[in-house]
Deep mutational scan, measured.
Amino acid sequence: KLETFPLDVLVNTAAEDLPRGVDPSRKENHLSDEDFKAVFGMTRSAFANLPLWKQQNLKKEKGLF
Rank of each mutant, 00 (worst) to 15 (best):
A14G: 07
F5I: 07
L64D: 02
K54T: 13
V11G: 03
D23Q: 04
T4H: 10
K37G: 14
K27G: 03
N29V: 08
P51E: 08
G41T: 06
S45W: 12
E34V: 10
N12Y: 08
L2H: 14
P19L: 04
S45K: 11
D33R: 05
L31S: 00
A46D: 13
K59M: 03
E34W: 08
K1C: 13
H30S: 07
K60G: 07
D35F: 01
A15G: 09
L18A: 04
P24A: 08
L7Q: 02
K62S: 10
D23A: 02
Q56F: 09
D23S: 04
V11R: 09
W53R: 09
N29R: 09
V22Q: 04
M42R: 01
P6S: 09
V39G: 01
V9R: 10
L10R: 01
A15R: 09
H30E: 03
L52A: 11
L18E: 04
G41P: 00
E28M: 01
A38Y: 14
E16Q: 09
A15Q: 08
P24Y: 04
N12F: 07
N12A: 09
P6I: 04
V39L: 10
L7V: 09
L7Y: 15
K37H: 15
V9M: 14
K54I: 14
A15C: 13
R20C: 15
K59N: 02
P19C: 06
K60I: 14
S25P: 02
M42G: 00
E61P: 02
N57V: 12
E61D: 14
L2I: 14
S25L: 15
P24W: 05
N29K: 10
F5V: 05
K60V: 14
M42F: 07
L64Y: 03
V22D: 05
L50T: 02
L10E: 01
L50V: 04
K59H: 01
G21P: 06
N49Y: 09
K60D: 07
E28Q: 02
A38H: 11
K62R: 10
W53G: 09
E3K: 07
R26K: 13
K1D: 11
G63V: 01
V11D: 03
V22C: 06
G21S: 08
E16G: 09
A46G: 08
G21I: 05
H30M: 03
L58F: 07
A38M: 13
L18N: 04
R26I: 05
E3Y: 08
L7C: 06
S45Y: 14
N29M: 15
S32P: 01
T43L: 11
R26E: 06
L31D: 01
K60R: 09
L2M: 11
D17K: 05
L10W: 01
A14N: 13
K1P: 13
R44V: 05
G41R: 10
